[in-house]
């Protein structure tokens, strides 16, 4: 009996220790998994700071050589190692401006159509089509722009613009020169097509989030559909729309391949929108692999740093605005 009792006791304590061990193991596993996921989350942060730091380190030689003059100089001469970012910055801003001038009104009108006018059964197909437009890779826009769109513009829109707006006193210089087909205007138009789905789908989402009561009240006092959209829906959704527009702007500023195909890669600032130019991303894409010498490479990396800083500011502002409207709705 004593034997058995002793034996049983040992067995019980054995069980207790294995149980404690198992619990320890589970606790260890939990802590390990927790730290692993936390490390991955911190890794995402490190990724962004890594991008910043490595671009800054890469552009140090150019920063030392040119200082702030880099931002203001129009020269780009790999032979004499003289570089300036102004034409690229100018091209980036002008093409993006053209894109937004077209995409914002058109995108808002499509969102208005989808939320207020479109029959229910058509909403989903059109919404999907708009999102497919957003999913087409930019290189496809590039090859299409080069072989289809640019020749088309060269034969139709550009001669028309030269013949009409090219004779209007103040804006005539914008539309002077021969119709090359490729150039700043063509790039801006292609960017407009690429940005359009972004503006449309975010505007549609924020329009749909407008409380029905507000719209019904407006209809109740006799507003027309357009008046409801213009004076009730749009003001209510304003912050979200601006967020969507800036998100689109972020894409337009950083877009590379589509622009590289049709901008013409000319490092000069031309008043005419029909002339070839360049953008920051097109310059990097065209010249980086062929760049010889530290200073040339470094100047291109500094261009990348400038682009990253510009888009960072725009995207941060966009996210801030979208978060604000989310808080209001949610």
């Amino acid at each position: 009996m004593v034997d058995v009792a002793l034996h049983g006791g040992a067995l019980a304590s054995d069980k207790v220790t294995t149980r404690a061990k198992a619990i320890d193991r589970l606790r260890l596993g939990d802590a390990a998994f927790r730290h692993l996921t936390r490390a991955a989350a911190v890794g995402v942060l490190l990724l962004l700071s890594g991008v910043m730091i490595s671009l800054f380190a890469g552009s140090l030689p150019a920063i030392r050589a040119f200082g702030f003059g880099f931002l203001a100089s129009e020269r780009w001469n790999p032979v004499t190692d003289k570089f300036g970012a102004l034409p690229a910055i100018y091209g980036t801003l002008v093409t993006s401006a053209i894109a937004m001038l077209i995409a914002v009104p058109v995108g808002l009108m499509i969102a208005f159509f989808l939320t207020e006018l479109c029959p229910q059964w058509l909403r989903r197909p059109i919404g999907i089509a708009v999102e497919l437009l957003a999913g087409i890779p930019s290189i496809i826009y590039g090859i299409w722009g080069l072989f289809v769109f640019a020749p088309f513009l060269q034969q139709t829109l550009q001669p028309f613009l030269i013949g009409t707006l090219g004779n209007v006193p103040v804006i005539a210089p914008l539309f002077s020169g021969p119709p090359y087909g490729i150039g700043v205007l063509t790039s801006g138009l292609i960017l407009a097509i690429m940005v359009l789905p972004f503006v449309t789908s975010i505007s549609r989402d924020v329009f749909e989030a407008v409380p029905a009561v507000l719209k019904e009240a407006a209809y109740g006092v006799g507003c027309t559909t357009w008046e409801v959209a213009r004076y009730v829906v749009l003001p209510y959704a304003r912050v979200g729309v601006i967020g969507g527009v800036m998100l689109g702007l972020g894409r337009a500023l950083g877009e590379t391949m589509a622009v590289t195909f049709v901008i013409g890669n000319a490092h000069r600032i031309s008043v005419s929108l029909l002339a070839p130019g360049t953008t920051i991303s097109a310059t990097i894409a065209n010249e980086f692999t062929e760049a010889v010498g530290t200073l040339y490479t470094s100047a291109l990396i500094e261009l990348g740093l400038i682009l990253f800083v510009i888009t960072f500011i725009v995207l941060a502002a966009a996210r801030y605005m979208l978060a604000r409207i989310e808080r209001r709705i949610g």
């Binding site: 989350a41 995402v44 998100l247 950083g254 894409a285 990348g304 682009l307 995207l315």
Partner: peptide
């Protein structure tokens, strides 16, 4: 707090210009 910072940074990465990512990997 870490989560909201990571969410913000992640949203920026989501729409950061891909050519800049190329430059980053070239550098490192």
């Amino acid at each position: 707090g870490l989560t909201s910072v990571v969410r913000f940074i992640n949203d920026i990465l989501l729409s950061a210009p891909s050519i800049v990512i190329g430059l980053f990997i070239y550098e490192v």
